[in-house]
Write a protein that binds this DNA or RNA. Structure first.
Lengths: 162, 162
DNA sequence: GGAGATACTGGTCATTTTGACTAAAATCTA
DNA sequence: TAGATTTTAGTCAAAATGACCAGTATCTCC
């Protein structure tokens, strides 16, 4: 784990949780709602923004809202010596939303979004053509059962000893 | 695809992209930066917030910032008749960040976060114990190669015919 | 146990932003 | 082309912002 990652503390978490309910509350409201001084919340927010603990804002956009209602996982095997080339290639494909390296026989697991199955085919072809990628296997996502969230985890942390 | 999803238009996308560079710009700055009237940006933002096109704010938090530096995919097979029970169970596990139903032999693919490998084991046990889940297989994520993003897709759309 | 660093409070200030409204112009669409 | 929807550009009073400050509380490490 990246232990140099900024660790949220209880106050950060409370702010974030409150912000979730209403992302545009003025800092003053937020402060009195949380029982903190305005300056505190203000500096916390500033710190949070620079902490690297948050993804960019656009990561909140649901692909479906961009007409990309079809998503899939593409697992790729690759010539390990060319890993960096492959990553660089993937990075340039806009439809590649995310990519992780799991333990096991799949070298890379790639999350993609497409307009329709045809488009999905095109995208997976594009992935297959990335340098170093030897084979891929695509598995369409039929249903988004639990959309990405951290709320529950955040709440759990707030319940623990601080 | 959920075709009742609100579809972002070019203006929405430009706003979102600009907001990415600086999430707290005042609306006025944003407006003049984009060459739009303030009222336009204001109403767009309001609409966006209610459109359901965005995940909650807390979805931006990186698990590592919550001390959950270890993530994994857990694939689960289940008694299909008890799908809803299983989902309800999963929903209650804070460490379950996301869950999708892919085509193929895996019934559910679950994204989890944990503090360390031991904790990961505990979480996967908890998943295994969900009603309806018959077997699971956990694969740890070794590296976050491309963290979730939509920026590139957003930019691509803006380059197309509007 | 204490010194120093760091964070929080509660206060002020001038400047900007906000939200809520207009009416008119521009754009879209059936 | 007529009607509906958006956008513009403007006003207003009320409120929020960012930048201060000194005093206090809390942490941390020797």
């Amino acid at each position: 784990m990246n232990s140099d990652t900024y660790q949220l503390d209880e106050t950060d978490r409370r702010i974030l949780l409150a912000l979730d309910a209403d992302p545009r509350v003025p800092i003053m409201m937020l402060a009195q709602q949380l029982g903190l001084a305005r300056g505190t919340v203000q500096s916390r927010l500033e710190r949070l923004a620079n902490s690297g603990a948050l993804r960019p804002n656009t990561a909140r956009i649901l692909p479906a809202a961009m007409g990309r209602g079809v998503s899939a996982f593409v697992s790729a095997e690759l010539d390990q010596a060319r890993l960096n080339e492959a990553i660089a290639g993937l990075r340039q494909i806009p439809e590649v939303l995310e990519c992780v390296a799991p333990a096991g026989d799949t070298d890379l697991l790639i999350r993609v979004a497409a307009t329709d199955p045809d488009d999905l085919y095109r995208v997976s072809e594009e992935i297959r053509l990335c340098p170093g990628i030897t084979r891929t296997s695509t598995s369409m996502i039929l249903r988004d059962v639990i959309p990405f969230r951290t709320t529950e985890l955040l709440k759990k942390l707030s319940g623990e000893k601080h």
